[in-house]
Amino acid sequence: MSENEFQLGRQLFYDPILSKDQTISCASCHLQANSFTHTDHELSHGIGGIIGKRNSLALMNLAWNSSFMWDGGVNHIELQALAPISSENEMGSSLNEVVAKLNASKKYKALYFNSYKDSLVTGQKTLLALTQFTVMLNSYNSKYDKYIIDKGGDLFTQQEKNGLKIFRENCASCHTEPLFTNNEFRNNGLVVDPFLNDYGRMQITNKSEDSLKFKVPTLRNIQFTPPYMHDGRFESLKEVISHYKLGIVHSKTLAKELNSNLNLSHKEEVDLLVFLRTLTDYEFLFNDRFSYPF
């Protein structure tokens, strides 16, 4: 773990060399301004304009994740990057191919030497360097964080305080503070998209009780991460709240917390939306250490 390794990881993160045809980098679908997701795209794009099956997840506070991907298929942050590198819908390459390309690059040979005292590029080193960058993408300076550190002082308006109260009563059992996720998988009552037929967690575990369950995503920086849900079906937070108020589809695996609809007045809904904006962390979104390095 070193500054050099972090900088190597940053270069790799922003370099389309990771994709088969040098067109897609990690940052293609994980943009800093959107808390490292891809705004205005329901589903991620890959090489040759291929459209993937899921909405890219925002990247932050990853060290506290107990699994990765919407279906939790990846068990360790160091192996996360293998998925987009190898997926035909994303970078369409393989770690083996990437290692060969990096070994042929004078620039990367030098960067690997600086990080590992050995210029030989290997799969392990490549994954470790990417991890070193992504694990540092930590967001903890939102207005909400400052309010909490201040032990509930006057940093929040009355409306924001009210929104936090509504949030804690209605949302926090899954979107648990301070990470705003409980790292678990839930079926939140979405109609199955007939084109995607995505059953989420069940595709990993082969257990029917996991049907339609997806990772509970963090809500940090939620203002800048639309569209929402695993398939990006909702463009605004207002649509998300209306789903919980009126759109829940009941099925065997529905989260028990959602058995009764979210019951909020118009004013309460506005207060909740105002609170959710306090989770925006501008210091994170504009931190130069995480930006495009070239």
Partner: peptide, 24 residues
Amino acid sequence: MNTTGAHSGALDPSNGMYWSWQSG
């Protein structure tokens, strides 16, 4: 070895003996 991240040598995932969409 399946649950402790990226390893080197014979176990380096670039050997192609590793699934990507699901760890293992």
